[in-house]
Amino acid sequence: MSRLYNLTKGIIKENPIFVIVLGMCPTLATTSSAMNGLGMGLATTFVLFGSNTVISLIARFIPDKVRIPSYIVVIATFVTIVDLVMQAYTQSLYEKLGIFIPLIVVNCIVLGRAEAFASKNGVLDSVLDGIGMGLGFTFALTLLGGIREVLGNFSFFGLRVIPKDPWWSKAVFFHDPILVFILAPGAFIALAYLIAIFNRLKKN
């Protein structure tokens, strides 16, 4: 029961984006499409999984005062692995996410889970926690990316969702998508309303 909870809590109840509000930079920057959000989410999930596993294993051998630098080295190692592997095998996605891949290292979620969870719990729980938090992050990013892509480009994962030609689609949706949602301001605005909706749902 509690094992399962460690895996699922990150997805809704303690969702890192909507509830804890951590790791805002990549959330806003890489969600101009659902695909980019998904890619960024999965890259972060891998780092969370790796760092949580290793840190839960070595935490008790690490003197308290060098705790944080040690964790940072572990996290940075996994980030670099993701960086190199993506560069080799998923180049176009790698180029779109750009600088935000190395910046996973300063994503507060990763260090936060290392410090708050992995250093105090066993391997299995830490692995589940890492994957769960990662999936919650991925879910949030894909949702935000999807909303922005649909509003700003009339497409979802690159497929057009609102037909171009029939008269009714022009009458209802006008000619052009609401471009601003793909640009920087749209990121802030879409996320603001998503969190507000989440707040509202949480209360009920």
């Binding site: 070595i58 008790r60 051998f61 690490i62 003197p63 308290d64 005062k65 060098v66 630098p69 040690s70 080295v73 572990v74 940075a76 190692t77």
Partner: peptide, 22 residues
Amino acid sequence: MAKVESNFKNMTATLLIITLVA
């Protein structure tokens, strides 16, 4: 399994090992 003490030797050794492995 007592926590490792934070003396200079331990801290240096830990960081060194982690960095080397990484």
